[in-house]
Amino acid sequence: MAKVIAVTNQKGGVGKTTVSAHISFALQEAGHSVLHVDLDGQGHSSIYISGDKAINSRKGGAERIFDRLEGLRGDATPCGVDLLHGHLDLGKLDEGEKTSADALALRDYVKSLPYDYIVIDTPPALQLRQFAAMIWADVLLVVVEPEEKALRGFMKVKEVVELLKSKGLLAADYKWRILFNKVDGRIAEQQKVVDGFMESYKGIVIPVPLAERKALINKAYSARVPVWKFKDTPKDLGGIWRGLPSLLGVL
């Protein structure tokens, strides 16, 4: 059975796309078979993983997982991660005939797909696609920036997780984690937020926040390589990104 990791927040721009892609990169490099499912209509993690900047304009991607296709596999990519890509028409899933009950009924099917790991990048809104990823997941990773709007997005996700748990809709061994991203250690208020969360959510907050390195991350994205393979990346920073699966507790 595949282990399913969903990466989410109800605010865009927090870095969930970059984080989800790097979890897939790292798991594949560690020798595991990985399916990356990009449910975000912008398809940015699909572009990163495939190297195809036009992939988000083509149908026939992540929506296939909702059709319970027998023998479903993602498309092979140069980096070794199989991909069900995101594209601009995915929003139709939220407006169509599929319901939350349909998504719940797919959980065993998703876990039965022939991979060691399935990593899901979600859209930044609680509609069918995000809901489905949350209830399919064994591990839900909420990526957060230490700023007000991102923290409000986290609180909305937390409310949904607690509601789903109360209704018995999550797996018995379900885990969720919080990862702070784009943290500037020179800003005392940001560090105060991180420290406060670590105290309030002991065992849930990943103890190694990701530093604000926008320029470097963007360059690695443009080169279509994991950040640890980009020539300008400091070794210690690359090691943190490469170690995301271990920090998440899935390796």
Results as ranks from 00 to 15, higher is better:
Phe66Cys: 02
Asp236His: 13
Thr8Glu: 01
Val142Phe: 10
Leu169Pro: 00
Leu69Trp: 15
Gly80Trp: 07
Ser24His: 00
Phe66Arg: 03
Leu170Gln: 05
Asp82Met: 04
Lys92Ala: 10
Thr99Pro: 02
Ile187Phe: 13
Val143Phe: 00
Glu162Lys: 14
Leu170Ser: 05
Arg177Met: 14
Trp228Phe: 06
Lys156Glu: 15
Tyr115Glu: 01
Ala171Leu: 14
Arg58Pro: 00
Leu151Gly: 04
Phe131Glu: 09
Thr122Asn: 14
Lys16His: 06
Ala62Arg: 11
Leu106His: 00
Thr17Phe: 01
Tyr115Asp: 00
Asp75Ala: 15
Gln191His: 13
Val161Trp: 01
Gln191Ser: 14
His36Ala: 12
Val143Arg: 00
Arg129His: 03
Asp184Cys: 09
Val4Met: 08
Lys219Pro: 08
Glu29Thr: 05
Phe25Cys: 12
Val144Thr: 13
Val14Phe: 04
Val142Glu: 10
Ala76Arg: 13
Glu97Ser: 13
Gly51Phe: 07
Tyr115Met: 00
Gly196Tyr: 06
Ile206Glu: 07
Val19Phe: 05
Gly168Phe: 05
Asp232Asn: 12
Ile206Phe: 06
Gly61Ile: 03
Leu169Ala: 15
Val225Phe: 01
Tyr201Pro: 01
Ser50Glu: 03
Arg129Asp: 02
Ala30Asp: 11
Val4Asp: 06
Gly96Ile: 11
Pro226Val: 08
Asp232Trp: 04
Pro245Met: 07
Thr77Met: 03
Pro209Met: 06
Leu88Phe: 11
Ser57Val: 12
Trp136Pro: 03
Leu72Phe: 07
Glu63Gln: 04
Gly61Val: 00
Glu162Pro: 04
Gly41Phe: 03
Asp121Phe: 02
Lys165Leu: 09
Leu88Ile: 14
Leu27Asn: 04
Phe230Gln: 11
Leu35His: 02
Leu140Cys: 12
Leu84Ala: 02
Lys192Phe: 09
Tyr201Asn: 04
Lys53Pro: 15
Gly31Lys: 06
Trp228Pro: 10
Asp40Trp: 10
Lys231Arg: 12
Arg107Cys: 00
Leu128Glu: 05
Pro78Ser: 02
